[in-house]
Amino acid sequence: MEYMIKNKNEQLTNWVNEYSDKLYSWAFYKTSKKEVAEDLVQETFLSAFKSFDNFKFESQPQTWLFKILNNKIIDYYRLLARNIEQVTDDEFLSKKTTDALFNNSGQWVSAPINSQWEEQEHLLDNVDFTTVLTNCIKKLPQNWRIAIESKYQEEKKATDICKELDITSSNYWQMIHRAKLQLKICIEKNWIIK
């Protein structure tokens, strides 16, 4: 028994040395917050320690650890999404901007000249365009960004995720709607159709 425990600790220490940087970089990429990423990686190894017996040695430790980490990232987003109802300042401003796209009866106010950017082909392969879009996403109010990014965290269908999020689903898709309108405004401001 003593031997087993020692073995387990050694194994995990090796894994920390080998994979923690990679796990940390991934968590940071996904959350953009240093402290959050560090916590998530720590929790990942603690979970791995506790469920070490479930690890099958024929599978890759990296795959296993990333699976645990990705679940932690999803949980993190879920928790954030639950607290989403609070309206922040940047959200208030963005709401005003997106509301201004429509008049009182809900019809589009005049469309800017380059409002039809979607007509261009292979936009997602165009580095200039994806750079603009990436910057626009960064500028979204944090809550909206969380809402929209959590939508793609899993390979699951959006409907499943929404059920799991269990924030009033109407709030959720309204938020996605606003986020996309804001992205539309931002793209039309910064992307010039050639």
């Binding site: 040395n17 940087d21 560090e38 720590q42 190894f45 603690l46 320690f49």
Partner: peptide, 12 residues
């Protein structure tokens, strides 16, 4: 992130 590495190993 060597600091994180150390923290985790200590915690384990």
């Amino acid at each position: 992130n060597p600091k994180l590495k150390e923290t985790i190993i200590n915690r384990l």
